[in-house]
Design a protein around this nucleic acid. Structure first.
Lengths: 235, 235
DNA sequence: TATGGATCCATA
DNA sequence: TATGGATCCATA
């Protein structure tokens, strides 16, 4: 699998020049590169989506990709997940005006930040949150918002969203995150950097190595491992 | 149905004091109030969710609510939808840095803004975008981001997200938008106001009038979207 | 084809 | 129970 490019949305404190960042970047970059299919082939060969008689498309599932990524980060690169980012519910919540009452109101913070796909801490204390985004495109918005807030709160030094290219997206589960549909919003997240004293936000765009119509190459399994066989049986 | 409160996230140009805004607010406020179930009863009586033998919950679907709202806005309040907000693909896209290349890169804007649930224009030119948010909670993030960008671009004077209270959410399709899960992000959207010369962003929180266990009150109808079939197959 | 959505799933 | 999905639907 390939990392096509890494976009830096903001970088306050010149974090992208640090050795700590470079080490994390190279680790996740290699972990992406090592995701192959069929496993052991050394490249990600993706079965092209195809229209079934029902009119639906058959596509590749997404869970395999994330689980390979996390495994590579752990087993090959030696990164251990750090547990959840603690963004307390009792943190400062600015008062908002109520309409039409015109009075101040503090909406209580009534949910927790559920954590990142991967939250790392280097020996020198450098903290990185990585989101492997193959949920629905709308979920990518939440991920970016969450990374932004965590950086602003000083809980994360660098936040990364890893997201499929538009071409890759075409052959994956319908409506998963993709850089094309985020492109119109980059300006907004980049603008958030103005109010942040220190921290970096980036997006890495990933893609398959090649497409195939070869019937002997299965689609990436959909659902969890237990249902992978089920998915293949349907073919 | 009730509107519990309307939170103003930012208001640049004192838009909330304008007669144009008041007129729109009162119209959508009444349109919410007139959503009833069973139809004609004058109140939204909601069947409480219940656990089935399979372990799944039976809950209320969400499409009925939105379609009633849009109908009330049109038939009772006389608001005609205005078509799509034109946020051109060739608008300014700021250059971002690529890592590790360190060079500037403009990510092309490769998707359109697909429009709002309701986009209104008063006779005096006042433009309001309203999102009735009963999609997935992550979709509420996209809606808020989209409203924010459209206001910033000067295409919308006031943007409103209408979203269920946490108590209401409990009995609707699992994982739909709710104020509880947005509460931790309000600060971010409120902060966007700082860089916007003119415009207003608000959230209205809505709720049922009463809950019932009465077996003669049906659940709000559900569609066949998403993983509906998968769920039914388990029954 | 493209965009926003609606629905149930997995797991701590 | 709570949070982040993963998946397929509806419609212009």
């Amino acid at each position: 699998m390939r990392c096509l490019r890494t976009l830096v949305l903001f970088d306050k404190g010149n974090i992208s020049s640090s050795e700590s960042w470079r080490s994390v970047y190279e680790g996740y970059s290699r972990s992406i590169q090592r995701i192959d299919f069929p496993e052991g082939s050394g490249a990600l060969t993706l079965r092209r989506k195809r229209r079934l008689n029902s009119g639906q498309f058959e596509r590749n599932g997404v869970k395999y990709l994330q689980s390979r990524f996390l495994k590579n980060m752990r087993d090959d690169e030696g990164w251990q997940p750090e547990g959840v980012v603690e963004l307390a519910r009792d943190r400062h919540q600015p008062p908002l005006k109520l309409y039409p009452e015109g009075i101040d109101f503090i909406e209580p913070i009534a949910s927790d930040f559920g954590g990142f796909d991967l939250y790392l801490r280097s020996d020198d204390g450098f903290r990185v949150a990585i989101e492997w985004e193959t949920g629905n495109i709308s979920s990518s918005h939440r991920s970016m918002n969450k990374l932004s807030i965590s950086i602003k709160a000083g809980l994360v030094d660098a936040g990364v969203l890893i997201v499929p290219s538009r071409a890759f997206y075409e052959h994956l589960t319908d409506r998963v995150g993709n850089i094309g549909e985020l492109s119109g919003y980059l300006e907004m997240w980049a603008g958030l950097g103005a109010s942040i004293p220190r921290g970096m936000l980036a997006i890495s765009v990933v893609e398959h190595d090649s497409l195939t119509d070869d019937l002997t190459v299965p689609y990436l399994p959909r659902g969890d491992d237990g249902r992978a066989k089920e998915g293949r049986a349907k073919l």
